[in-house]
Design a binder for these strands. Structure first.
Length: 735
RNA sequence: GCUGGCGUAGCUCAAUGGCAGAGCAACGGUUUUGUAAACCGUAGGUUGUGGGUUCAACUCCCUCCGCCAGCUCCA
């Protein structure tokens, strides 16, 4: 009896027997299709193609079925999850007794975490891959089965999979029945779905191994995470691997060193970027560009110092909230450090009394600082001592290397009474901030400890919020477009309602998130909400930008803030002659200059467009006799605003050209006696890597000026990587 | 910060317990050159740091510093 009504994507309805799976349906349509089916989408949910349709749908009378083949990106994710199982199975064969943790898919592959004392190294990859190949060749089917909780616990205990047992007990409390997948001798607690059989995995490779911890908890058991990738064809995989190589070639740390753009020198300090002249030129050009745009949009330039009183950041909330990732406070006088030290001695984790010499030093310090030392007696109780020292601590100067610019700008706003007529006030500064990032996070220019934000703070009335926010979005769009970054999406980062890490009232948060959502919707930008990603003081819109090879970077950000104005008691006089509270918008279109330029280096692979290139033109003299003309030319081009150098070495022209090509200089001006006599230049184009003709000086100037004015991007190897869609991460930490 | 890997000349890399080397760059000279590398020569090192094992350490062990990958974090 036909009990299933199936509706296919083209709208056709068919009836099938009650026990049919998606695979059975496919077989009935055609053997070739059945062979190509990897998974199925039933009523929008991806499921195993081999599971009975009745089991995966609520209503057997109405089953919307889409058969997913190897052409479908969603199927790719399913297959990669199966590949994770195959790898785990191979590793179990090679390392009997290995403990299994989680094995989800990632954007371009998968990983599996193992509990194994023996270290897996790169040298082991070939034999793991070989074993995986055997499993794929065996082509055994994946089977799904259920166990009740109690049985599941017994079952994983029987398998000696402690982590799985623990996960069922603690992580999956709300699940009554638990699904498992069996593939030959390998059984794993898993949510699925999976491919029908291992043979669907056409290409795979183990990429790396790295340490991690059970459920990401540093205090928990250390695990080994093995990363791999898998594809439906060898060709796709080769292309992907080639793109990984391409990304390595673009590494800004390598290119930055080769081209002399920047330096991170251990003698200066970890995570502290030295901008060498060429890198500084790129940055200065970008800053100049954005400053012009800010004038046009009514921003006012300000400058603020690199340090500020700790109290300033206590008021803003940054100091207590980010204490661990800030450089320690700077004391106005060295003696202040002793007071701080003694407070820690008395109240710290290893609290104890003060030694006699410490008390002596303390009283000496108090004298230097001008405190009333009679208030402190060695006979006081510990708590009384702490109370006195806290008072001293507060009355001395303590500074913080500024971790944010906003409190400084807030003070500038506060410096004079504001009327509603003055608003919005837009204060802009390329402000350098310092954050003591964990050593493991530091990464070239992309993650540093001293960074310069292209920062600004807008103070406006609640009525102006949406218009101002819309304008900042427009600004970010404009600057991204100007450097040729036209592929981006916006992430609306909102609070996690379950968390208590945020400051401010429920009402303000709702208002802020509502405004952001409204303006983003009206802007026509595609955006998605991301819970728990907000800053502690307010929600934000982050720009996620795709580079030339399809990698996504979080760059610009716009943040809405009702809380700092509250904390700093900001006011303006309204038309009703009453005091009102302004709203703040924080925004940084580039994010930080370090990160942005680092990204640009990788985006352009070091070959900057003419307007940004640190050295735009190089004059290459053919013989010594042309040096004088070459130098005259250089002066002319410099006077016209170009960055030019002259290569007058006594090498052959071929060598000069080769060097200039390798240094990625956009144009070479080759001049010999012919050019000197005619007062012309032979232009060689780096992109084309050839002579593009001899023109007069005026013509050359006009050509280059036009290219600079248009910010033309002449060459951007948009790789096919950009078209390789990332697959959704199919499994999270649930199973 | 955690786990693992790594650290040799300015750069890229050799030397698996037995005399620290090459290419490029630099410097000196010759060459005066027409669109991706002219030729000859010179110099360059306490092998990241401090300690240990050994007749002998770039090599093996420990400490610290730094780098890389991943984890965790990211105002």
């Amino acid at each position: 009896m036909n009990a299933l009504k199936v509706i296919l994507p083209d709208g056709t309805e068919k009836e099938y027997p009650a026990h049919y799976s998606a695979l059975d349906v496919a077989k009935e349509i055609g053997a070739r299709l059945a062979n190509a089916v990897v998974a199925a989408e039933v009523n929008g949910v991806i499921v195993d193609a081999f599971r009975p349709l009745a089991e995966v749908s609520d209503n057997p009378e109405r089953i919307n079925l889409k058969l997913l083949t190897d052409k479908d990106p969603l199927a790719l994710g399913v297959m990669r999850h199966s590949a994770a199982h195959v790898m785990a199975r191979a590793i179990m064969r090679l390392y009997p007794g290995v403990g299994l943790a989680f094995g989800p898919t990632t954007g371009h592959g998968f990983y599996y975490d193992f509990d194994l004392d023996q270290k897996i190294s790169e040298d082991d990859f070939p034999r793991i891959e070989q074993e995986m190949a055997n499993i794929v060749k065996e082509d055994e089917p994946f089977e799904r089965f259920y166990l009740e909780r109690d049985e599941a616990v017994k079952f994983t205990e029987g398998l000696k999979q402690e982590l799985k047992t623990e996960h069922i007990r603690t992580g999956l409390k709300e699940h009554g029945k638990l699904s498992f997948y069996r593939q030959g001798e390998f059984v794993d607690l898993c949510r699925g779905p999976h491919v029908p059989a291992a043979g669907k995995i056409k290409a795979f490779k183990i990429l790396s191994v790295a340490g991690t911890h059970w459920k990401g908890d540093q205090t928990a058991k250390p695990l080994q995470r093995v990363y791999g990738t898998a594809w439906f064809s060898q060709k796709d995989q080769d292309q992907y691997l080639e793109q990984i190589e391409e990304a390595k070639r673009r590494d800004h740390r390598v290119i930055g060193k080769k081209l002399g753009l920047f330096q991170i020198n251990p003698d200066v300090g970890q995570g502290l970027c030295l901008w060498l002249p060429k890198g500084a030129t790129i940055r200065a050009t970008l800053e100049e560009f954005i400053k012009q745009e800010l004038v046009a949009r009514g921003y006012l330039p300000v400058y603020s110092p690199h340090i500020g009183r700790v109290e300033l950041y206590e008021t803003s909330g940054h100091f207590p909230y980010y204490r661990d990732s800030q450089f320690a406070p700077i004391f106005g006088h060295d003696a202040g450090r002793i007071i701080d030290y003694c407070i820690n001695r008395l109240s710290g984790d290893e609290a104890g009394g003060l030694e006699a010499h410490e008390e002596e030093a303390l009283l000496e310090a108090a004298k230097i600082m001008g405190f009333d030392a009679t208030g402190y007696k060695p006979t006081l109780s510990k708590d009384e001592k702490i109370a006195v020292l806290r008072k001293w601590e507060k009355s001395q100067e303590r500074y913080l290397l500024k971790p944010m610019n906003c409190p400084h700008h807030v003070q500038m706003y506060k410096a004079e009474p504001r009327s509603y007529r003055d608003l919005p006030v837009r204060l802009a500064e390329f402000g350098t901030v310092y954050r003591h990032e964990q050593t493991g996070e530091l990464n070239g220019m992309l993650r540093v400890r001293g960074l310069t934000q292209d920062d600004a703070h807008l103070f406006c009335t609640p009525e102006q919020v949406e218009a101002e926010f819309a304008d900042t979005l427009g600004l970010v769009k404009f600057v991204l477009q100007s450097v040729g970054l036209d592929d981006y999406r916006v992430q609306l980062s909102i609070r996690d309602p379950k968390s208590d890490k945020y400051v401010g009232s429920e009402e303000n948060w709702n208002k802020a998130e509502g405004s952001l959502r409204k303006v983003l919707t009206e802007s026509g930008l595609s955006f998605e909400s991301c819970e728990g990603e907000a800053a502690f003081y307010g929600p934000k819109a982050d720009f996620m930008v795709k580079d030339a090879i399809g990698r996504e970077w979080q760059l610009g950000t716009v943040q809405l803030d009702y809380n700092l104005p509250e904390r700093f008691q900001l006011e303006y006089t309204g038309s009703d002659n009453k005091q009102h509270r302004p709203v703040m918008i924080h925004r940084a279109p580039f994010g930080s200059m370090e990160r942005f330029v680092g990204m640009l280096i990788e985006h352009f692979a070091g070959a900057f467009p003419l307007w940004l290139a640190p050295e735009q033109l190089r004059i290459c003299t053919v013989t010594d006799k042309a040096i004088e003309y070459g130098q005259e030319l250089a002066q002319i081009f410099r006077r016209n605003g170009f960055r030019v150098s002259v290569d007058n070495r006594s090498t052959k022209i071929n060598a000069k050209i080769r060097d200039a090509q390798l240094e990625l200089i956009p144009y070479m001006l080759v001049v010999g006696m012919k050019e000197a006599e005619d007062r012309t230049v032979a232009i060689r184009d780096r992109v084309e890597s050839k002579d593009i003709g001899t023109v007069s000086i005026e013509e050359a100037l006009a050509k280059f000026k036009e290219e600079v004015a248009n910010k033309t991007i002449r060459q951007l190897t948009k790789s096919k990587f950009a078209q390789v869609a990332e697959t959704a991460v199919t499994a999270d930490n649930e199973y």
